[in-house]
Amino acid sequence: MSLTDSKLKSLLNKVSDKITILADRDSMSARISPKGKIVFQYRYRHKGKQKRYDIGTYPALTLAEARKVVPTLRDIAADGYDIKEYYAKDEIDNCKPTLDQCIELFMDKYVSRLRTSTQSVYHYSFGKHVKGKFKTPVEDITKPQWYAFFDEVEKSSTGYVAQTMVKQLKTCLRFCSDRGFINQHTLNDLATKSVGHNSQVKDRTPSISEIQQILRELERSQCLVSTKNTVKFIIYTGARCGEVREMELTDIDLKNSLWILPAEKSKTKIKIVRPLAPQAIKVLKEQIGLFGEFSKYVFPSATYQNAISSQTINKFCRAVRARMNLQSWTVHDFRRSISTILVDEGIEPYITEKLLGHSLGGVFSIYNKSNFLNEQLAAYSKWERLIG
């Protein structure tokens, strides 16, 4: 049976006539001295001999904290080291958490409260670039090791991704420091701007002819239909990529040709109602016909269990861009295009703001609660004709 805090509290400082060993999971145990002192221990074998390593003393070290140390100890023993020799002394300060353990705490206690799309970004970036890269305690990672790691991220991905990783890991370790999980670490000594580069101000506005070329290239692409249709739907509606990716069947009213985005899925935390023009409806009907029986998502991943990921969309767009003789573009640029081009075509700016899912500012937003559905539909229909 695993240890519990209540059991440990009942034994703490309780005088006995013998030493008691209570087993926990994953080869961890608690040693209770005759005077009631409780020490967490890890059992392992080295060169055929059974050994114990003192992890730390309860309650200075909590049960949960002691358990977080175990995976690191297991890895050390699995690599053939004697844990006591590895740390040179048997005190808990030498069993400092690894970067993986810091990420685990950060994901569990902080990231889990963020928006689903933000959680997905953290899960992907940490899983792809960070997990398993450092086995040494995070407090012992040197500046040269950090720089070598981020340089490798930039080499395998981009400078922007490398700099983003610096920001994400600083946030993670700051959170762990605030909770007392770790002490000093050298990542704080790195200037964020010394790694990679930040994102540039975006002003790309693909023209009608460019969008027509992109749509033709999408049709020629040999990829999963959900991937292709996600990008097409973004072009037709000017909606945010995350809004489209996470669209569920319950958000669609085909009878009335409406897409109703709940407030909890909206970046502005306000319900967004968009009318659907013919090409957008065509995409939705194809998706629902293909995947409606298997997934709650209109644009599902290959497993049908989740929404298609932003990484899949970005990878697909990189492949499409590589085949085209066009200035670089992203799916977010299409929002700029639909707004700019439709205003030039005579559509009122407040209507294009509604298409983009923006809140109307000033007194307008206080007294006018109309969704301007007819006007939006007219604008969307005009947009589809322009790029069709």
Rank of each mutant, 00 (worst) to 15 (best):
D93P: 06
Y86D: 12
M165F: 05
K51H: 00
M247K: 00
R113C: 11
I208C: 00
S310G: 13
V320Q: 08
A66I: 00
K202G: 05
E152L: 14
L61D: 07
Y53F: 11
F106R: 10
S339G: 10
S112M: 03
T303M: 06
T72K: 06
E65I: 01
K296N: 15
K255I: 05
R204T: 03
Y350A: 11
D90A: 09
R216M: 09
A162C: 14
S27V: 01
G132Q: 08
V130I: 14
S199F: 08
S257M: 08
S209Y: 11
K232I: 07
F150N: 06
S209K: 15
H358D: 05
S33E: 05
D17Y: 05
A239V: 02
L284Y: 07
Q213A: 06
V153P: 04
L114S: 08
S370H: 15
R113W: 13
S157F: 05
R274E: 05
L218I: 11
T136G: 04
S221F: 08
H185S: 12
T230D: 02
K18W: 11
S156R: 15
Q41F: 01
F106A: 03
S112P: 01
L22R: 03
Y86R: 04
P300W: 04
N188W: 13
K232S: 03
S156W: 04
K7Q: 15
L326G: 06
K18F: 10
D151T: 12
Q163E: 14
D203A: 12
P206Y: 06
G36W: 03
D253T: 06
F233K: 09
I281S: 06
S339P: 01
L12C: 14
S370A: 15
G36L: 00
V111H: 01
W259K: 04
I260Y: 04
K315Q: 04
C172P: 08
G292Y: 09
H358V: 08
C223F: 00
Y122E: 06
I21R: 15
S381Q: 14
L169D: 02
C241L: 12
G346A: 03
Y42N: 00
S365R: 14
R52D: 10
Q213I: 07
E375N: 13
S125Q: 12
V320D: 00
A30E: 09
L173D: 01
H129E: 00
A88G: 12
E246T: 04
V15T: 13
G48P: 09
G132W: 10
F134T: 02
G56P: 00
